[in-house]
């Protein structure tokens, strides 16, 4: 359809009529318009193709080669992938990524839902101000966040000071340097970054749920918990889906925070797939192996985001 053919009321009818009545000059005009449409897409797709799609294809291609980035690359088939799925170090990075999903996605979403569950029945005061403040972690660069938390977790930082103040001196430690606490400590930074987003998303969503659904639930004798399960939770499907996609993707990538807090340490305790890719590509120069790790990570992100969307698709 060209510009002039658009009709809000009955596009289908119009299309059929247009096809029947279309004479030869009209077809030529339509053809020209379709070519024009491509011209508007051209500049954007030039950038997108050259710097997103083409590199993506090349990454896929590299992943089947053994290459140090300098000498000639050697075809090795699936060897890089086999190495990822059989090496304990590589697998542990993916295990860490899944642990981060707990901290980045699960905890913030649950916290957000609990708040909304309590708040749907009352009018929220100061909502604008609270929303502004809750969103602050989302706008700060992760490098800045890392600097702030490195100090909070430091040996002379506020957490240890608080523990000492209540007599728990034996619990104090360098939280990011301890094998036992480094992974959850980094994970909790992610929780901090994400919970405000989840709260704001869910509160916004819950205010769009029609009030009469709650009235109806009350008439049916539903208590607060049943009301939450029957009205609030289904009403928030879309928001939950968005929150999960954002947080799960962030958990699986998570390069900035890890690089700027623990650098993957102590030992390999907080090593993640992004780190494997960076080190393989630019430090140890196993370019093919790094590319294979990127393909695995990207596939994982695509599968999980696709799965979340399919599971929580809104009924229309």
């Amino acid at each position: 359809m060209s510009l002039g053919h658009r009709d809000v009321a009955a596009p289908e009818k119009r299309r059929v009529a247009g096809r029947a009545l279309r004479s030869r000059p009209a077809t030529r005009r339509a053809h020209r318009l379709r070519t024009t449409a491509w011209l508007y897409l051209l500049p954007g797709f030039a950038f997108y193709g050259a710097f997103s799609l083409w590199p993506l294809i090349e990454t896929f291609q590299y992943s089947f080669y053994k290459w140090d980035g300098i000498t000639a690359a050697k075809w090795v088939g699936l060897k890089n992938y086999i190495k990822i799925f059989t090496s304990e170090d590589a697998l542990s990075t993916f295990a860490h990524a899944f642990t981060f999903i707990l901290f980045y996605a699960a905890i913030p979403v649950v916290v957000g839902l609990v708040i909304v569950g309590v708040m749907t029945r009352v009018r929220i005061r100061l909502l604008g101000l609270l929303r502004t403040v809750l969103f602050i972690p989302q706008i700060l660069a992760m490098v800045v966040v890392a600097v702030a938390w490195r100090w909070i977790y430091a040996e002379s930082g506020p957490i240890n000071a608080a523990l000492e103040a209540i007599g728990l001196d034996s619990w104090t430690r360098a939280w990011l340097g301890d094998f036992k606490t480094a992974l959850p400590a980094v994970g909790l930074i992610g929780t901090w970054v994400m919970y405000g987003l989840c709260m704001v998303l869910f509160i916004g969503g819950s205010q769009k749920i029609p009030r009469d659904l709650y009235e109806a639930a009350k008439l049916d004798g539903a208590g607060p918990f049943q009301e939450f399960m029957a009205v609030t939770l289904p009403g928030l499907r879309g928001e939950i889906s968005v929150a999960l996609i954002l947080t799960v993707t962030a958990a699986l990538r998570n390069f900035d925070i890890v690089w700027n807090t623990t650098s993957g340490g102590p030992g390999n305790a907080t090593l993640i797939p992004s780190y494997l890719i960076f080190e393989g590509a630019f430090v140890t120069r196993q370019v093919g192996y790094a590319a294979a790790a990127s393909v695995v990570l990207t596939t994982l992100i695509l599968l999980l985001t696709g799965g979340i969307q399919a599971l929580l698709r809104q009924r229309k």
Partner: peptide
């Protein structure tokens, strides 16, 4: 993710 294209 940026990780998918940094090497190329």
């Amino acid at each position: 993710p940026a990780e998918a294209r940094i090497v190329p």
